[in-house]
């Protein structure tokens, strides 16, 4: 089944790269939506059927951590699969992300890693 994806990142280059890598990962993709910050991401989330979100951490207007917290506060999206994409390596920050029931993709990433994280987030693969 093809999945609908939302990529939230303030860098147009990174959004393109994530989209390209998802398409190269072998995961069957439906529509890929894009947002340049968390607020636009929430607006798209309210309008579209989405299966998984990719969210950057550092963004203007609304950053990724705030967007993640807001998505989790909404009963309709409390269990929506989410992957945070970042170069972050601070264990506390990563733990905070995991406590909000989101997966983590460390930059740089390969199509194979992205595929694994997507399948884990969707519950197809057991997370390690």
């Amino acid at each position: 089944m093809a999945i609908n994806i939302l990529v939230v990142d303030d860098s147009a280059v990174m959004r393109s790269m994530i989209k390209k890598t998802i398409r190269n990962s072998g995961v069957e993709v439906g529509e890929i939506f894009e947002a340049g910050n968390g607020q636009v991401g929430l607006d798209i989330l309210a309008e579209e059927w989405l299966d998984i979100l990719f969210i950057d951490v550092n963004m203007p207007i609304m950053d990724g951590m705030e967007m993640l917290a807001r998505v989790r506060k909404n009963p309709d999206t409390v269990d929506l699969p989410i992957l945070i994409v970042s170069t972050e390596s601070n264990p506390e920050r990563i733990e905070k992300i995991q406590k909000l029931n989101a997966g983590f993709v460390h930059k740089p990433f390969t199509p194979e890693i992205l595929r694994e994280r997507i399948l884990e987030a969707l519950g197809v693969l057991e997370s390690q």
Partner: peptide, 10 residues
């Protein structure tokens, strides 16, 4: 800039 962000972040 994106490459710089990744290299610097790591």
């Amino acid at each position: 800039c994106e490459i710089a962000n990744i290299i610097c972040g790591n």
